[in-house]
Design a protein around this nucleic acid. Structure first.
Length: 252
DNA sequence: GCGACAG
DNA sequence: ATCTTGTCGC
């Protein structure tokens, strides 16, 4: 008769995900997405949150906007935030989205001409327990096209780190090679992508919003100087640097 | 008890 | 997410 506190919250979050899931657009909606070289694409965004060691409440929310195709910094925003929601696997968006959305809204208010035409998100999109990960959540709430890029495989909907999966990874010969992540239902939820020639460990790309999977994979590859696509990598580096400068480690 | 668990 | 520098290898 006693329901665990978190249990009620999870039920509420699940229904919120189901509601917003219906608003995801899994197809290309922009002209530049149809172009072979993405002509018309000039600005790509990246978001991330970095935490102070031993503190899971205070974080630096980061937004960067890079030029495309040169991937040079056009805009950067580092902002300290206080998180309220706990991290529960499958519900990352409820912890992080509000602050990432706020960063996009600050940009829209102050320099709308610099708004990115697509946002890369550190985490999954449709490749998710209920096909509504962080990248979908931020995409739907912002209305911007978004792509989810996870550094680790989420074992979900029948996708797992099997021998077959490992051999598919081994078969990725060069940057740009990929293979589908297929759910038990038969639906392709994402793709494992070898993002550069140098890194044999793939990244996991999935649709966030207003882009199709093949376009998302092709775009991700075209934004990779290293394993992690540059917009996310820059957001990660710069938010960590911000914490280093403003919250230096103390010698005890 | 053991493994999984985006960030 | 974070704990952690240098080091072995291509």
């Amino acid at each position: 008769m006693c329901t665990a506190p978190a249990e009620e919250l999870v039920k509420q979050w699940e229904s919120e995900q189901a509601r917003l899931r219906q608003q995801v657009v899994e197809e290309d909606t922009e002209d530049w997405q149809r172009s072979p070289d993405f002509s018309g694409l000039e600005r790509v965004g990246g978001v991330d949150l970095s935490f102070i060691k031993g503190d899971d409440v205070n974080a630096c929310a980061q937004l960067v906007v890079l030029s495309y195709p040169d991937l040079e910094l056009l805009y950067e925003d580092s902002h300290m935030v206080t998180l309220t929601a706990p991290y529960i696997a499958g519900f990352l968006a409820f912890r992080e989205t509000p602050f990432l959305l706020e960063a996009l809204q600050r940009l829209e208010r102050n320099q709308p001409e610099l708004l990115p035409q697509v946002v890369f998100v550190d985490g999954n999109g449709l490749f998710h327990y209920r096909e509504f990960g962080l990248a979908c959540h931020l995409g739907v709430l912002s209305g911007l096209p978004s792509v989810g890029v996870a550094k680790n495989l989420l074992q979900v909907q029948g996708v797992d780190k099997s021998e077959a999966h490992q051999s598919q990874i081994a078969a990725l010969q060069k940057g740009g090679d990929s293979f589908p992540l297929t759910a038990a239902s038969g639906k392709v939820l994402g793709k494992a992508l070898r993002s550069s020639n140098k890194s044999s460990k793939p990244v996991y790309v999935s649709v966030g919003h207003k882009i199709c999977l093949d376009t998302a994979v092709r775009l991700t590859h075209s934004c990779c100087r290293y394993r992690v696509p540059e917009p996310i990598r820059q957001a990660d580096c710069r938010s960590r640097e911000y914490l280093r400068i403003h919250f230096p480690a103390v010698d005890t």
